[in-house]
């Protein structure tokens, strides 16, 4: 937890952590939720969300190191406790106009890639009713990395972290000095 997070962020982080602890304390089979907790945030005036369980960390603004020549959807990398985390320009990814307030970073739980989304506050928690959780029939097209869901009467864009990867430039298999291939 970043020491200079805003109070609301710290509050949200506490919620997320507690929720995760709660889930972890029960065996998988008995988890019976009223809903799936979502972490909501704003971007370009619209509300978006990620499943809270997929968020590993929320950080306030950090200096981002731009990588020259990278896809514009990639803002660069930040140093998180000595490791490099790739930061996405979330607005660009979602085809939104740039949002200068999007300075908070949501570090996601993803296999292999350390990824963070640039988002704007206020950060909040919401519950997505599992009964209304869309299954095979989703709104929006299959290739999009987000889909519309209704939460407490309003429509928000739920971002699927796994699909973010598909929206990113595909790695080429050229020879790199350090062989950037991650081992299986």
């Amino acid at each position: 937890m970043s020491p200079n997070s805003s109070p609301i962020e710290q509050e949200v982080i506490r919620h997320v952590l507690r929720d995760r602890a709660h889930r972890a304390s029960q065996s998988h089979a008995t988890v019976e939720h009223d809903g799936t907790p979502l972490l909501t945030f704003s971007l370009g005036g619209e509300t978006y969300a990620v499943e809270a369980a997929r968020v590993r960390e929320v950080m306030s603004a950090k200096p981002i190191c731009r990588i020259p020549g990278a896809d514009p959807k990639l803002r660069g990398v930040v140093n998180v406790r000595g490791g490099l985390v790739t930061v996405l320009d979330t607005c660009r990814l979602l085809d939104l106009p740039p949002d200068g307030r999007a300075t908070s970073l949501l570090v996601l739980e993803l296999p292999k890639l350390q990824l963070a989304l640039q988002v704007a506050g206020p950060l909040d928690l919401a519950l997505l009713d599992n009964r209304h959780r869309p299954g095979a029939s989703t709104h929006g097209d299959e290739s999009s990395c987000h889909r519309a869901v209704a939460v407490s009467g309003r429509l928000i864009g739920l971002i699927d972290p796994d699909r973010l990867l598909a929206a990113l430039p595909t790695p080429s298999h050229r020879d790199r000095p350090n062989g950037r291939r991650e081992s299986p």
């Binding site: 020259p68 990278a70 896809d71 990639l74 890639l113 080429s172």
Partner: peptide, 12 residues
């Protein structure tokens, strides 16, 4: 750097 930066050839 992560593989997603593969196209950024100037950065090793």
């Amino acid at each position: 750097l992560s593989q997603v930066f593969d196209s950024a050839r100037l950065a090793s």
